[in-house]
Design a protein around this nucleic acid. Structure first.
Lengths: 334, 334
DNA sequence: CTGTTAGCGCTTTCAT
DNA sequence: ATGAAAGCGCTAACAG
């Protein structure tokens, strides 16, 4: 029932070594032989056994990618970029979704290690760095995605979140907005903290106020809750601009503002998000945002991993700069 | 550097067979020995090599799932359900995104076959059934997801799309709407055709008109384009209700209607989607939809696969019934 | 250019 | 209860 190289060799009257050569180094085999072997493969319906190849090679040809939330297009885009670079190297990306849960993150790390993935790309949740260090010490190349770490113990690809937060609030202030609200959380997520830091800095410099509305996750639902809180306030107590820690949140806020009090955006409250997911431009009020080169991040992460694993490069830390994208939600000055 | 069962055996002064038993059948080993071996595993940082296990077992413990579009939460939810059932069997789900492209679908099928996945769950694009049949004949259990096929050659889990389409239009007609538009496409996708068929049937029975606005994919962007076409029409030429083939499309239509002509939903045009993704309820005008039990579909698909592969069951075809969910977008009668 | 062979790490009889 | 040894399918090193 199951066809192996041996059966192919038999059928083509060659040795298994030759079959393997046809598969992996066809240039080392006579065209006539190649043809004969290929015909046998076709006829018998032979399909390589990846497990055997891996066992031989010592590691798989697939790269593990653990993200915080598969439902966030930002991460889907990173995955797409990673897949692209992986494909160039004839490799594959296996996606794991930690769903912001530490035990899921760990389970994926362990699973991937058993699978002897060629490398691990991870947007780590909390500071479970010791575990990653151990993994790395056992020989798996680890690249941090969308996250840097203070010491230089890991390669990483990230975006300057402090800078991004600064850009956002600077933009709002330049529109004449004076009372800005930052919507985001939880503070256990580094990106949130960094964006807030940048926002504070810009607020101080511009001499505008910045209040913080804490959320317990980075989802549309959490954004809606925050938006409802805000729109329930008396008009004079509302901020005149909102910076949301990501676009999902911003979209939730937007929906709440429009639905409840039909507060006009951007007239009464300007709104800016973060990530610039496709959906941001397609929102009812097209959303201003801070763009991060998601696909490039994924692409670069695989690239670093490949180079570090190939021994051709030391650990490297790449930091991209975010970019302000202005759309209707912040189009008019106050 | 790399630790194998052998090293563990050496360190614990037992044989490799015993180490394996500790790992797989701890009840067959003296507690004292178990402890010694466990300690050695811990000390050396031993991690099983999955490739070797697979090679031995003849197949992997992971299940392949190929979907049409990872960005559609409906499929993400199916994946989640599948993952849940797989976890119960200590198995794993590997996700492949065909992106509605036949060559990508094929690439994933081939890749999964090389990986000797325990089974394939697939929401097939076109009618590339021969390829699936061949795969099945080589021993891989195949379960069709969200799709039935006329002959009984495959197990499948689907939802009655004709019934769902019927429900949607019947609902719109019951609201007093007489001029209904179906937005969807391409017609190469079976689900679209079936939903349209049900819609036509309901329209005929209710004596209302049904026009078709064809789209080239099932995305938000395609929906926006369709919505813009519609809102560009003179008011008297517009339909008074729209049935979109999925929620992504419906959300795009909604955005276009509100943005452009600020056509009120549902007052001027009622709108209903399909899938009932989380986002539907969170839209600016909460969207009525036809709910499909996405997670249950995924869960059941794995279940069928497991049973068919275990030889305990023949091919089976499960069909779920969709359910009408009414929200604001169709709340008021004309 | 082709054939022979060892061995990747694990599990599982089969002995003891 | 534990140990010894075979073998899953493949690739690459070496020999011819």
């Amino acid at each position: 029932m199951v066809v192996s190289v041996r059966d192919v060799a038999l059928a083509a009257s060659v040795s298994v070594g030759t079959v393997s050569n046809v598969l992996n180094h066809p240039d080392k085999v006579t065209p006539a032989t190649v043809e004969r072997v290929t015909a046998a493969i076709e006829k018998l319906g032979f399909v390589r056994n990846d497990a055997a190849r891996q066992l031989r090679a010592g590691h798989s040809r697939s790269i593990g990618l653990v993200v915080l939330d598969v439902r966030n297009p930002f991460f889907t885009d990173i995955a797409r970029g990673a897949e692209e670079r992986a494909a160039e190297a004839k490799m594959t990306v296996t996606l794991g979704n930690s769903d912001e849960k530490i035990e899921r993150e760990r389970a994926y790390i362990d699973l991937f290690e058993e699978q002897r993935i060629a490398g691990l790309l991870i947007s780590p949740l909390a500071d479970d760095l010791p575990r990653l260090r151990r993994l790395r010490d056992r020989g798996t190349t680890v690249v941090l995605v969308d996250r840097e770490v203070a010491d230089e113990s890991f390669s990483s690809v990230s975006v300057d979140d402090v800078g991004g937060g600064y850009l956002a609030v600077q933009h709002l202030a330049s529109l004449g907005r004076r009372r800005i609200a930052f919507v985001g959380g939880p503070m256990g997520i580094r990106q949130v903290v960094d964006r807030l830091e940048g926002a504070s800095r810009a607020a101080n410099e511009a001499g505008v106020s910045l209040e913080v509305i804490l959320t317990d996750s980075l989802t549309v639902l959490a954004g809606r809750a925050a938006g409802e809180t805000l729109s329930a306030r008396a008009p004079e107590d509302r901020p005149d601009a909102i910076f949301a820690a990501n676009d999902l949140l911003a979209m939730g806020v937007l929906q709440a503002l429009m639905m409840r009090g039909s507060i006009r955006v951007p007239d009464e409250i300007a709104l800016i998000g973060y990530d610039d997911i496709d959906f941001a431009a397609a929102a009812v009020v097209p959303l201003s945002s801070i763009r991060q080169p998601a696909e490039l991040i994924g692409y670069t992460a695989v690239d670093l991993m490949l180079r570090e694993a190939g021994g051709q490069a030391e650990r490297e830390r790449v930091v991209f700069q975010p970019e302000l994208v202005v759309r209707d939600s912040t189009s008019r000055p106050l």
